[in-house]
Simulated scan of single mutants.
Amino acid sequence: MWDDNVVVMDDRAVKAILFDLDNTLIETSRAGGVAIQKTSELLKTTLGLDDNTIRSICYKFKQKLLHECFDPSSGISIDDVRVRHWEESIGETVGNCFTPSLPTQCYYLWKSSRLEVLCLSPEVHNLLRQLHSRYKLLLLTNGEAQTQKEKVEAVKCEEFFDAIVIGGEHVEQKPCLSIFTLCFNMLELEAQDCVMVGDSLDTDIKGGCNAGVRATVWINSADGAVLDGSVKPDYTIPTVLDLPDILAQLK
């Protein structure tokens, strides 16, 4: 007798997994916090300012980073742009009473500190190794090309992926359909053969849904966003380490 409570699953086998990078496979937010702390210490030592003023400078930098518009055809490097972020953040807070080299020092300390912290945990390393023995894996990350390449190189994850697609190298990034179509073509698979895994509802999950992937899996950590109804993932897990449980359901 048919049970109306049984969920009928698509019996099409999953052949590939598309992974986001930041805050999905690596803890970019935590690394950014460490980098800001180290840069704060440099600013405090150099300028002799109180903690509130230092926090104000760092907050301004993070806001500039968040709303950054970078044009690679401008002839200015992303490093130059972010040095300027620090220069403006310091100047807007305390005026121009600082040595010209300080913004450069701040930027490269922040950058190197962040990259030093970024890594694949042993658990994620093992997960990718195991998954790569059964599925095609593709890394699909938004962001400025140089910055994302440096992260990929720092965490040494290339060996696990059949392809790596960096949004900043293309006309459109997630959630646009074109970059997902590029990924499917590189894998020589259809959208329904693939699962999209990421922490962003607006880019990873929305993009995967619009592209017609087999399933979307949202990584929602304890301090993650709350579903607002506009984008609905097929599955939600607190950590990418729980992904095998989802894949088992998709067989």
Rank of each mutant, 00 (worst) to 15 (best):
residue 93 T to C: 04
residue 97 C to L: 13
residue 98 F to W: 06
residue 98 F to A: 00
residue 99 T to C: 15
residue 100 P to E: 05
residue 100 P to D: 05
residue 101 S to H: 14
residue 103 P to E: 02
residue 103 P to H: 04
residue 105 Q to F: 13
residue 105 Q to H: 15
residue 106 C to V: 04
residue 107 Y to P: 01
residue 110 W to Y: 15
residue 112 S to L: 10
residue 113 S to Q: 11
residue 115 L to M: 12
residue 115 L to V: 02
residue 115 L to I: 02
residue 115 L to A: 08
residue 115 L to H: 08
residue 115 L to C: 05
residue 116 E to R: 14
residue 119 C to A: 12
residue 119 C to W: 08
residue 121 S to R: 04
residue 121 S to G: 02
residue 121 S to W: 13
residue 123 E to C: 01
residue 123 E to P: 05
residue 124 V to W: 10
residue 124 V to I: 02
residue 125 H to S: 11
residue 125 H to R: 15
residue 126 N to G: 05
residue 127 L to C: 05
residue 127 L to I: 01
residue 127 L to N: 08
residue 128 L to P: 00
residue 128 L to T: 00
residue 128 L to M: 01
residue 130 Q to K: 10
residue 131 L to P: 04
residue 131 L to Q: 03
residue 132 H to D: 09
residue 132 H to N: 13
residue 133 S to Q: 14
residue 134 R to G: 03
residue 136 K to P: 04
residue 138 L to S: 12
residue 140 L to K: 09
residue 141 T to M: 03
residue 141 T to N: 01
residue 142 N to F: 02
residue 143 G to H: 07
residue 144 E to G: 05
residue 144 E to I: 15
residue 144 E to S: 12
residue 145 A to I: 13
residue 146 Q to W: 09
residue 146 Q to Y: 12
residue 148 Q to T: 01
residue 150 E to K: 06
residue 150 E to T: 02
residue 150 E to P: 05
residue 150 E to V: 07
residue 150 E to S: 09
residue 151 K to W: 04
residue 153 E to H: 10
residue 154 A to L: 04
residue 154 A to M: 05
residue 157 C to G: 09
residue 159 E to G: 15
residue 160 F to W: 06
residue 160 F to P: 00
residue 161 F to R: 04
residue 161 F to M: 11
residue 162 D to K: 07
residue 162 D to I: 07
